[in-house]
Nucleic acid binder design. Structure first.
Length: 415
RNA sequence: GCGAGUGUAGCUCAGUUGGUUAGAGUACCGGACUGUGACUCCGGGUGUCGCGGGUUCGAAUCCCGUCACUCGCCCCA
């Protein structure tokens, strides 16, 4: 262990950070509930095969980014690098495929051993939605609309654009892959070194390359749309029509591909230019083949993952904590009475700040610092009269309130 | 995994061609104000200059290594 640094790529979520974080996850939870999604949680780690088989044997995440270790029982275990594979495993393990359709929301940490950057950490958090058992393109439209509504509720929609594409069904995708490999193989000498590797491992990724020479080749490359069979074209058209009907703006980006092998048909990303190179805030698509690949019954599915930290970075301002009421005892009688009064107020819904030491001035200072709206002064004089002095900290006005009427008198500070 | 930049107080940063006791703002602590915060005034520096080694009479400053962060690539949320 080096000094007292956190592990590279991990961060503490201090109260300010966590409030931002919570705005994102609470908003997502609220909106997924409105759409009828049920929250669930799966384990943070799974058997390594769960991710290995599903994400694609050659993807970067599987080949070099997973936190994989052998546990004390000799099993190969992996910290989840994303949510979908674990949820599909849970679907199969629990026999939930008998109750389709199902709509899930979940959130929590995921882990990838990447080079850290702004908006890219080794432990980060995602919000995630999945729909199982709906082959209709309406489900694709719904999950996208849900994403859009969450972004709007967070106030970040103006900074975000929606891009969509169709990867087609497996026949279309295979056909396109062949056409694309032929094209790039013929032009291989002009490809960047990265893309020469992609040509072997994951040719679709070349479409996504930022290399200027690659982009020239990509511009003249065969289009995905030309390889889509009639069924795939109809599906994509239905998705677009559904988005149009809801008034959701998007651009079709035929170079948009997804990192994991399990996607088919619809692929989409909500992206921003405000975060530098890490522009994707929500990314997802349809993955009809995944459940059966993992050994379950053939089950259509569509979903997305969203980056909580990236969304939190887009938030205009950190939300403020709620304003408390401060109890300020002066002298022994006050000290003795304060905990009881504090507890009473708390039971009536107040957030109550009660310090345990310090002069009156010091406690008033503390009350101000924590943003208290009112201070309840309890000195010998007050207690002798059966009252408390309530000071409104915003206005500097003071009133005397009988102790048995404190709850009522402080009601105005509750909201 | 590759390339580049940065690292000085809790935070944001200044620190000359290497030079003696490392600074500012803010935050924080104490006091003016032993029953009143926010405002004002006075006082206080709270520091392994990321870490380790080297060059030098002398290193925050130059060199090497290392760690972390940032930017780009890669990848992705």
């Amino acid at each position: 262990m080096e000094k007292l640094q956190p592990v590279r790529g991990t961060h503490d979520l201090l109260p300010d950070d966590l409030r931002r974080h919570r705005v994102v996850t609470d908003t997502a939870r609220e909106w997924t509930e409105r759409y009828g999604y049920a929250e669930l949680a799966t384990p943070v780690f799974e058997f390594t095969e769960v991710f290995q088989r599903t994400l694609g044997e050659t993807t970067d995440v599987v080949t070099k980014e997973m936190y994989t270790f052998v546990d004390r029982g000799g099993d190969s275990i992996t910290l989840r690098p994303e949510f979908t594979a674990g949820i599909v495993r849970a679907l199969i393990s629990n026999g939930l495929a008998q109750q389709l359709p199902l709509k899930f929301f979940c959130t929590g940490p995921v882990f990838r051993h990447e080079r850290p950057q702004k908006g890219r950490m080794r432990q980060f958090h995602q919000i995630n939605v999945e729909v199982f058992g709906v082959a209709d393109p309406g489900a694709d439209v719904e999950v996208i609309a849900l994403g859009q509504d969450i972004l709007a509720a967070l106030g970040v929609a103006p900074q975000v654009q929606l891009e969509i594409n169709s990867l087609g069904d497996s026949d279309s995708r295979t056909a396109y892959r062949d056409v694309l490999v032929d094209y790039f193989t013929a032009n291989a000498p002009d490809l960047s070194d990265d893309s020469k590797t992609r040509l072997i491992k994951n040719p679709l990724r070349i479409l996504d390359s930022k290399d200027p020479d690659d982009r020239k080749l990509v511009a003249d490359a065969p289009k995905f749309a030309d390889s889509l069979n009639a069924e795939s074209q109809d599906f994509f058209a239905a998705v677009r029509a559904g988005l149009d009907a809801l008034g959701i703006a998007y651009t079709v980006n035929d170079r948009l591909v997804r990192g994991f092998d399990y996607y088919s048909h619809t692929a989409f990303e909500f992206t921003t230019t405000a975060l530098g190179a890490q522009g994707t805030v929500i990314g997802g698509g349809r993955y009809d083949g995944l459940v059966s690949v993992m050994g379950g019954p053939a089950t259509p599915a569509v979903g997305w993952g969203g980056g909580v930290e990236r969304l939190a970075l887009l938030l205009a301002a950190a939300p403020q904590p709620h304003h408390p009421v401060a109890i300020v005892p002066v002298g022994e009688q006050g000290e003795a009475l304060a905990p009881k009064i504090a507890r009473d107020l708390r039971s009536h819904g107040h957030r109550v700040e009660l310090g345990f030491s310090g002069s009156l001035a010091k406690r008033m200072k503390r009350a101000d610092k924590v943003g208290a709206r009112a201070a309840v002064l309890l000195g010998d004089d007050e207690i002798a009269k059966g009252i408390a002095t309530v000071r409104d900290l915003a206005h500097g006005t003071q009133t005397e309130v009988p102790l048995d009427r404190l709850v009522d008198a402080l009601q105005v500070y509750l909201q």
